[in-house]
Structures are given as C-alpha cells and as structure tokens.
Design a protein around this nucleic acid. Structure first.
Length: 555
RNA sequence: GCGCCAGUGGCUCAGUUGGAUAGAGCAACGGACUUCUAAUCCGUAGGCCGGGGGUUCGAAUCCCUCCUGGCGCGCCA
C-alpha cells in the first residue's frame, strides 16, 4: 500500500521536473509514507514536500502544490488528496480500495502478511542453550519463547530458519554435575558427606542419585571414583537434557539441531581452529597462553583462548562453534543470550569480523531477567542454592499460552515482572485472554450463523459498499497494517511488536462487536460483516501462530 | 573507573526507525447483559516523555552532558 503511494509520488516528482514546476532534480532515495496518528490527517501522509523545500529554495507548501498537481489521481483509489499543516500531503483512500485488503486476506489466508525479503537466505536462531546441569527455570522460558517466536517471525519474512540448541557438555560443569550426583549417592549409602557449595544444590540431584543408585549401585562401586563421577556426569547430563527437551516441547518449542560442544572436541575442531587463527595471524602466543587479537576488530582487550596450562577456554569453543555455524552455510546467525552476557558481544562480533564476515551477520538478542512475583511478593530465586521456580512449574500453573504471551509482550531487552497470580487470572488483567477471546467470539458468531443457515460469503458475492461504518473501516485499516508490522518486527528482530499489534486489533474488534450486530442484519450487510470477521480471524490466528500461542475456537 | 541497557500518568509498558494534539492495560470513579460469549464495551480523571544543552521546518525518538537504576568488565563457564 505504502509502496504504491511511493511509486505514484516518484512518478509525480519526475513529471514536475519535466514540466519545470520543480527545479532541483533531487530524487530522495527513500520517500517516507506514513499512517498519521490522527485520522483527520488522512489514511497516509508524506513529508516529501518538506524534505524537498530546502533544495527547492521555496516553501514546503509550494512544493506540495506542484507535487499534488502532477499526481495521477486515480479516482478508484483516492477519495481526496490535501495539503495540510507545514506541508504534509495527506491521502484519503476510497472505502472500496480499502476493502481490497479483505480480498487479499481471503486469498492468502494464513500466508497474509508474510514477507519475502528474507527469501533465499538461511538463518539460524540459537537459543535456550542452558547447561544440562539442571532443569529449565523461568528465565530460560523467556529465552525459549523469544527465540522460538523470533524464528517463526523470520520464517514469515521469507527466511529459511533453523532452531538450534547448543549443549555445553564439555566444560567442568559436567564434572561438577557428576560429583554432585556421586555425593548424593554416598549419602544414600548412609555416609555423611560434606556437600560443597560449588556443587548443584537442587533437589533434582537427589532424585537422579536415587534413580541411578537403585539401578547401578553395584556397577558404580566397581569403578574408581573418577570413573564413577564421569559415568554419572554423562548419564545425568543426558537425563537432564531429555527433561529439558520434554519441557520445551510442551512449551511449544522444538529444535532442528541439538549441537553438542563435546563433538567440537571429539573432532578436534577447537584445536584446529586455534591453528587456523594462528596461521591467519589472528592469534598470538604470549605468557604461555594463546590470545585472540580481538582488539583489531573493535573489542577492548584481547582474549585468551588457550590458557598457560594448556586448557582451552569456553571462548575458544565459542569461536570454533561460530565458525562452524558460518561454514554450515548460514547467511545470518542469531544468538539469543541472557542480558548478563552482554559483555560478550564485542568479542563475538570481533570473531565474526575476523572470519571475514560482516559484523551484522551475527545478531545477538539479549533477554533480560525475569522477576518472578506471586501476588506482588517477590519469589526468591538462586540457582546456586537450588531455590528456583522451574519453567515446568510455571507452565503447569499458568498455562503455556499465558506464559508465552507474558514473555513476548515486552521488548526482550527490558526487565520483566512475571506475577504468577496475575498470569493465572483469566480476566481483563490478562491480555492474552483478551486476544484469544476475540478469536473465540468470531468463531462463535460464525457457528451461530452456520446454525441459522447463513452461508459464508465468497469474495465475488460480497457487497463491499455495506462496509462503511467507521469502526469497520478502522478494523480494515488495521488489518492492512499487518504486513508492514510483520516486516518491521522481522527487520528489528522484535516479535513483541506482534503482541502489541494483536492487542490493538482485538480491542478494535471487541469495540465493533459491542456496537454492532452481524446476524439479523440485512443479508448483504450480514455477509459483508462475516467476510470482514473472517479476515480478522485469519490475522489473529496467523499472528498468534507466529508467537506460538493457540487460537481457541471456544473459551 | 570503563562499557552495555534502561528511565514515558499512581503501577506495568507501547510508541510504526525524525512527523501533526504522546497511546494502551492495571488501579480509581460513573455507566451498559431479555441480543452473535460481560474473559466484553462506553465514559471520566490522570503527562515538563529523568534534568540541561544542541542538531532542524519538526525530537520521547538523533548528538553531547549530568543524574538515577540494572548488568558486565577473569588465563571462569
């Protein structure tokens, strides 16, 4: 829609220059067309005349007059074109033209609003990637919802998308896991053990110990302590990861690839990558350690990849891992991280630059902490003490949809208060039900219409002149903005914009519903309204689908 | 000390990448169910967009500076 206007304006501009009504010859690369906040300022407006005025050395209004004079005003499109304020050109479109949006929605169905700017590009979204040393907690849930919705959003923008979970199964946290289970096993045999602070304190360790000790006590006792711990680490990690996968699946998140850090070592990829970097002159040896020269790529200090004791750092794995991502052919790589890791961004961007890629080929999405409340009271959480609320518990208590909505309705990079009582409340306090309710209402109306023998209208049969109420046009105009909302959200990597969009759409629908009836009106009106409702339903369910939230037919 | 992020009605947040008179929801107050779902709607009230300076036709949005809060600054992961 905006694109059409841009073309018309560009066309008019050329004509002005040909006819000499404008003289500068300036063609702005991007003509700004916007939807004014105030409906009195038209359906669309452009500031083109104001932008050109200085170059033309005349007043914006004069420029606007020349432009409007040269516009090919198609009568089926424009109801009115006016010059207003300091020099805006306001466009008013005909109702019939707006109704074309409904036809488009009917034609495209669930694909309405989807974009093509990502076509031909492969993008990988890596998210959650929690260490397999304990169950997912509420903070991971936010990362999961954000990464998953972002992936769906990018798919809707035309990208080929893969979801990936990076398993940190190579560091010494796995050993700590094994040791934690081992110690709990000792306790089961009645030995008093001092359980160290740096071990995992959560009750789930005891559960794991009970399970494995009941099954493998004899085998484990034949092993040396080192071997036993190693075996328990491997088993425990697998077990916990399976639990994580199950939690995520129930949360509506499924990964295309579970990528194990350990496989990097098994293929010797970390070591080979270090050699590669040295060879390329991107890494150097100093004080018996191997450093990555990240300052050459904008970082504020160089980073150790291999310590003087010969052990590689976590960063070294990350470099190898990200190099591998690009070697797998992704055009764009997105990492979703907890905001406390933001200090890592410069060095990872440096890595990307050092590998000869554009820094923008890696995008890092930061997800802020979740502040868990219950009835306004803060719920204490600390992973170290093992006192935390798991994603599973929250999901069971408030439901998947409400949970995902809460995580997705704000910018990911702002702290989030998550009140369990509020989220659970199925009332107006809770926007997700407000949106779903709009969808359910439409289904209900359609069901009733069906029961009364009213047929669902086909595009060709719809009398679009019957849709002339301000509330109807407002709805249609908002539906028309869905594609650009998807595009803007996708370009900014901000799925929360869809949540805001949905809230607005649901609000407009509820207002319309309360004010006007569908069934019982004259046939042409009834059918036209049903046609409109179909479009609203299509967009609501489509947008909810991107967010991974269900669109119930009944509530 | 340095860096990143944030600061918008009492509370929680949007704000279409610089547009015209800054928007929702909650909380408060007053109304609307014999109707397709009241999990809804309508109305009232509430603002120096942290402070100050700058950029221009125009700033919540961009730049500088200060204040406040969160996070991060390891040969940890």
């Amino acid at each position: 829609m905006k694109e059409i206007l841009r073309d018309l304006l560009r066309d008019a501009l050329h004509r002005c220059y040909e006819e000499g009504t404008l003289v500068s010859g300036e063609i702005p690369p991007e003509i700004v067309v916007e939807v004014p906040a105030n409906a009195e300022h038209g359906d669309f407006a452009t500031n083109l005349a104001m932008v050109l005025a200085r170059k033309e050395k005349t007043s914006p209004r004069k420029v606007a007059e020349a432009l409007v004079g040269a516009l090919r005003c198609r009568e089926d499109v424009f109801r009115q074109v006016e010059i207003a304020g300091p020099g805006f050109i306001n466009f008013f479109l005909t109702n019939r033209f707006w109704c074309g949006v409904l036809e488009e929605i009917a034609r495209k169905g669930a694909g309405y609003g989807h974009q093509t700017f990502g076509a031909g590009k492969r993008v990988q979204v890596e998210f959650v990637s929690a260490n397999p040393t304990g169950p997912l907690h509420i903070g991971h849930g936010r990362g999961a919802a954000t990464g998953d919705a972002l992936a769906s959003l990018l798919k809707a923008c035309g990208y080929e998308v893969e979801r990936e979970y990076y398993i940190n199964d190579a560091g010494n946290q796995m050993r700590t896991l094994g040791r934690s289970i081992w110690l709990r096993c000792q306790e089961l045999d009645g030995r008093a053990v001092a359980f160290p602070e740096d071990c995992y304190q959560g009750g789930y360790i005891r559960d794991l110990a009970r399970e494995i000790w009941g099954r493998e006590r004899e085998i484990l006792l034949t092993l040396s302590e080192e071997e036993a711990i190693d075996r328990l680490a491997q088993w425990g990690g697998k077990k916990i990861l399976a639990g994580i996968a199950a939690d995520l699946k129930d949360f509506g998140v499924e990964f295309d690839c579970w990528y194990s850090e350990r496989t990097l070592f098994e293929r010797d990829a970390v070591r080979k990558n270090l050699d590669y970097l040295v060879e390329k002159g991107l890494a150097y040896r100093q004080d018996d350690a191997l450093w990555f020269a990240s300052t050459r790529f904008g970082d504020d200090k160089d980073r150790v990849m291999s310590r003087s004791n010969g052990v590689t750092t976590y960063f070294a794995s990350d470099v190898a891992y990200h190099r591998d991502k690009f070697e797998r052919g992704f055009d764009l790589v997105i990492d979703v991280w907890g905001a406390d890791h933001h200090g890592y961004i410069p060095r990872m961007k440096a890595v990307v630059a050092a590998l000869g890629r554009s820094r923008d080929d890696l995008q890092v999405i930061l997800v802020q902490l979740v502040n868990l409340l219950r009835g306004g009271q803060q719920v204490a959480m600390s992973t170290r003490s093992g006192e935390f609320v798991t994603l599973r518990e929250v999901m069971d208590e408030v439901g998947k949809d409400a949970c995902r909505y809460y995580f997705l309705c704000r910018r990911s990079d702002s702290k989030l208060d998550f009140d369990l009582e509020l989220a659970k409340e199925q009332s107006s306090n809770n926007p997700v039900y407000y949106i779903q309710y709009a969808h359910a209402r439409i289904c209900s109306i359609k069901g009733k219409a069906m029961a009364e023998g009213i047929r669902m209208p086909e595009t060709a049969d719809v009398d679009f002149t019957a849709l002339d109420l301000p509330e109807e046009l407002a709805l249609i105009k908002h539906l028309a903005r869905f594609p650009e909302t998807v595009a803007a959200a996708g370009r900014a990597f901000e799925p929360h914009r869809l949540a805001a969009y949905l809230l607005e759409l649901a609000g407009q629908f509820h207002a319309y519903y309360n004010q006007h009836r569908i069934i019982g009106e004259k046939r042409n009106i009834c059918e036209a309204r049903l046609y409109l409702l179909n479009a609203v339903q299509t967009v609501i369910s489509g947008a909810l689908a991107i967010l991974g939230i269900s669109a119930p037919e009944r509530m």
